[in-house]
Design a protein around this nucleic acid. Structure first.
Length: 463
RNA sequence: GGCGCGGUGGCAGAGUGGCUAUGCAGCGGAUUGCAAAUCCGUGUACACCGGUUCGACUCCGGUCCGUGCCUCCA
């Protein structure tokens, strides 16, 4: 059996993955804030951790993959104020779209997809515990804010490798006067009447307010996975401050001092870049997954997203897309040649699984997949059910939707409109009248079609 | 300024102390009336400068360049 090795951001080294409970692997990855369409950079996280979940499932009997939906956030409020759409409408719409788009990219819905707004109570419990243990405070006079006191957690900064002093030196944040320490961050904040809010024990107006950004993940991970759990994931930009703060909250709420009392392993995916620069909404250089799906097969986008190792930057370009499309076409061709065979349940190609077990080395996995697919051309390889089955199960492991061979066939244009011309050309060819044959090719080109001669006769393809 | 990551053949992108992926593009060939598709063949590249070593792209030190986080961000 293959063993999984992963790069643990917490220790900054590649180590063997040792489960807390080999009978039940528990994985959490920070999901999207639903106020807008997801761009292809956002999608990378979903694809990477979906793949990780697949690999874990093939290695262990039970896996619980939790990925949240953040449906209370200032950006959502901003979207509400700008568009006038009710908050619930915005969050429901973009949650649905996110799930649809990710499904197109071959991502299974996480086993549990908790929403922040249905875990307010758990967050309040956590905050109360932090106050009781002296790690959080309400500023005087109480105005509805609750802050986490960073100096109260000795090991703060251990994940991102920065000391508190460094942060203060580099701080570009305006320091709110109510903070005891410049690094302190918000656990709970008051809501204005026109902002979403929940009653709480904190501050005036029945404590009506809403949670800070970080507390939701602490609360939801703990509720659905228990502490500590195995792997916590997310984008590299969440490492600081979001993940750092999650660790601080969760450890302190339960009186732990060691950083891995929350999650044992941390994994961070790199960014999608555009011409070397991070794809981001503020730079405006993003491409929406939703738009790409109009033009490309989701499987092609998934291949493109996995074409670089997950920790490295991935430059998004037409060429990258073209390469991924070609890759997918090769798979389709192999499966087309194996069309007549039945498939059966069979384990995936071991070289692919081994590559993935090596810290999700997807480029190496594609090499192994290519070797597998290329067996179709090796004369001494038995072609048939076994080969087809192993290709299918390997694609399943990678989360790549197998190409629909039958549908590819239908993409050939209905030839009826040009039946006469095609017949004439076939006759011309039989008569070795190449001039006339080429003339007809040109004519059809003018109509926007390309003639492809196949064993079953001429076919048309849109140019 | 602090902390971090990276510089591999035309491009994308793994990897390893000596055997040197894979894909895209290109080139040559087979096949095809032509075309497309397909198949076969083809590329010793690892930023720069030192050091360690029998031997380094791979280890160590330095230089240059790019980029990320430190503010909401996958």
């Amino acid at each position: 059996m293959s063993t999984l090795t992963i790069f643990n951001s917490l220790t900054r080294e590649k180590t063997a993955f040792t489960p807390i409970d080999p009978d039940h692997i528990r994985l959490y990855a920070c999901g999207p804030t639903v106020y807008n369409y997801a761009h292809i950079g956002n999608a990378r996280m979903a694809v990477v951790f979906d793949l990780l979940a697949n690999v874990l499932r093939s290695l262990y009997p039970k896996v619980t993959y939790v990925s949240n939906i953040t449906d209370v956030d200032d950006k959502i409020i901003t979207a509400h104020l700008e568009t006038g759409a009710p908050i619930a409408e915005i969050t429901e719409k973009f949650t649905r779209i996110y799930n649809e788009d990710m499904a197109s990219l071959g991502c299974k819905t996480p086993d549990i997809q908790p929403r922040a707004t249905t875990h307010i109570e758990e967050m309040i419990t956590l905050i109360k515990s932090l106050i009781e243990r002296g790690h959080a405070y309400e500023p005087e006079p109480a105005d509805g804010h609750v802050l986490f006191n960073v100096p109260s957690f000795e090991n703060y900064g251990g994940l991102s490798g920065r000391s508190r002093d460094e942060q203060i030196a580099g701080a570009r944040v305006e320091i709110a006067s109510y903070k005891k320490d410049p690094a302190d961050f918000v656990l709970w904040k008051p809501s204005k009447d026109d902002e979403p809010g929940w009653e709480s024990p904190f501050g005036p107006n029945n404590g009506r307010g809403r949670p800070g950004w970080h507390i939701e993940c602490s609360a939801m991970a703990e509720k659905h996975l228990g502490l500590p759990f195995d792997i916590h994931g997310g984008g590299a930009d969440l490492k600081f401050p979001h993940h750092e703060n999650e660790i601080a909250q969760s450890c302190c709420a339960h009186g732990h001092n060691n950083l891995d009392a929350f999650a044992k392993y941390w994994m961070h995916n790199g960014f999608v870049t555009v011409e070397g620069e991070k794809m981001s909404k503020s730079l405006g250089n993003f491409t929406l997954a939703h738009d790409l799906l109009e033009k490309y097969d989701g499987a092609v986008l998934r291949i493109a997203l996995l074409s670089a190792h997950y920790r490295k930057p991935l430059d998004w370009s037409e060429q990258a897309l073209h390469q991924a499309q070609k890759q997918y076409d090769r798979i389709a061709k192999a499966l087309k040649m194996l069309e007549k065979f039945e498939t059966r349940q069979i384990p995936p190609e071991s070289d692919v699984l081994n590559a993935l077990c090596n810290d999700l080395n997807t480029p190496a996995a594609f090499v192994a997949l290519n070797n597998l697919v290329n067996r179709i051309n090796e004369p001494d390889t038995p072609k048939g059910s076994t080969l087809k089955s192993i290709i299918i199960s390997t694609l399943d492991l990678l989360g790549i939707e197998p190409p629909d061979v039958a549908q590819a066939e239908n993409e050939h244009v209905n030839t009826s409109e040009f039946e006469g011309l095609l017949q004439e050309r076939t006759q011309a060819k039989a008569d070795k009248n190449w001039a006339r044959a080429d003339e007809i090719r040109d004519e059809l080109t003018a109509h926007g079609y390309k003639i492809i001669d196949t064993a079953e006769g001429p076919k048309l393809e849109k140019l």
